[in-house]
Design a protein around this nucleic acid. Structure first.
Lengths: 220, 220
DNA sequence: AAAATAATTTAAGTAAACTTAAAAAACATA
DNA sequence: TATGTTTTTTAAGTTTACTTAAATTATTTT
């Protein structure tokens, strides 16, 4: 399994978990920074290996074999993030990129060692659930995206689910941290934005960004 | 820098450090498990990138640029080994293979984090010196290869410098561990072998294997 | 529904890292 | 030194993962 293949499968999985995310070659291509033609090419290859189901002009769908591989990779990624954060003290904004490299060089043996060293964690430092060895994904039922949160309601930030440096930079600059209290002030549907209050500061977020912030209703 | 390139440079470096080791395409090819033709091909490529000096039918020599890259890779390898051994408790015989993969996915940033976490070690768990950030290699002057050790003399095992699983399996099975006392009983030049005594047991080692075991004269 | 636009696919080509087979050079030996 | 063996190199071909450009199909707009 090559790095290109692994990343392609992972991207299809991630897109399939994104609301409104389309798993079409063009979208995958854009995410991976390759041409549409390359994505179509790869889609045909992966279909031949029975990792995805590919019908021309249709969305790409993972087979269960393909999904298992994607989940195994995501597991490696999130365990590495947890390890880098907890053990080496690397920043939330930096662990993603390092894990992105390491995940492809990690044997099943090594990942299980890391897992037991960390005490078999269910969530990574961003709050993202870590797929378990059996493929099950820890529950995030009580969490909702900030973009869909209720006006006037108070929440706790539970998950920062982005991958770009800039997302974490923005969160850090605006005190959006895991555990932080946050109040939804107002939705602006026409602006595709939401106003929230954090530590007395009013902040306007666009829905795309707010969709990467997961919150839980504050219990008093 | 691709993985193939990195491994090729590292192999040239390692061969250049091996007594009687020839850095010719065929030898590198055999070590890396590729064809002679592929090695010649790679040699021409690396020469074009000024990482090695390549003259037809001559030995391959690293340029200082090439040597720096090889040393940086070796540093990553040995720091990973130290980390896997100390922190995750992985066996001496298993750390090499894992580090062999991880070394290629390790940023300079990450390696420096690992280095400080470990307290900037000078030697890895096999006793191999870890190249320092400036390219300097910690002293191993008092160490000699067991194959060249003096008859009748007592030593301490200080370094097990192999890479194959079988080498470590053999050492483990015969109590050849770092710190272990060892006495050279007799050389058998015609057999290319050496007889040693460990924990009361007499063992016959061929010189190739004994050349990977470094010892220090026992001080009473 | 037709036309315009956008996405996807096909076609052709490239670069890296290999392969095998044949040719050339180096080395070893009688 | 001539011959035979081994090693290295060259040549030609493969696979993977891309590229750009052109053709095709799908979607959106009018």
């Amino acid at each position: 399994m090559s790095i290109a293949t692994e990343n392609f499968l992972k991207e299809i999985y991630q897109l399939s978990q994104t609301p409104g995310g389309e798993t079409k070659p063009g979208v995958v291509a854009e995410k991976l920074g390759i041409s549409n033609a390359a994505a179509t090419d790869m889609a045909r290859n992966l279909a031949a290996k029975e990792l995805i189901i590919y019908e021309k002009y249709k969305e790409l769908r993972l087979t269960s074999k393909g999904q298992n591989l994607a989940l195994a990779l995501l597991r490696k990624h999130r365990l590495w993030e947890t390890f880098l954060y907890r053990t080496l003290g690397i920043n939330l904004s930096q662990i993603h990129n390092e894990a992105e490299l390491l995940e492809h060089s990690t044997s099943d043996f090594l990942v299980s060692k890391i897992d037991s060293y960390l005490g078999e964690p269910a969530f990574d430092p961003h709050g993202d659930p870590i797929p378990q060895p059996d493929g099950k994904i820890p529950d995030t039922d009580e969490l909702i995206r900030l973009s869909t949160a209720k006006q006037g309601q108070n929440y706790h930030v539970r998950r920062l689910s982005g991958s770009e440096d800039e997302f974490f930079e923005f969160c850090r600059d605006n005190s959006i941290d895991i555990g932080q209290s946050i109040e939804v002030e107002k939705h602006y549907p026409s602006q595709n934005s939401i106003a929230v209050k954090i530590l007395g500061q009013r902040i306007l977020l666009n829905n795309e960004l707010a969709g990467k912030i997961y919150v839980e209703i504050k219990k008093y």
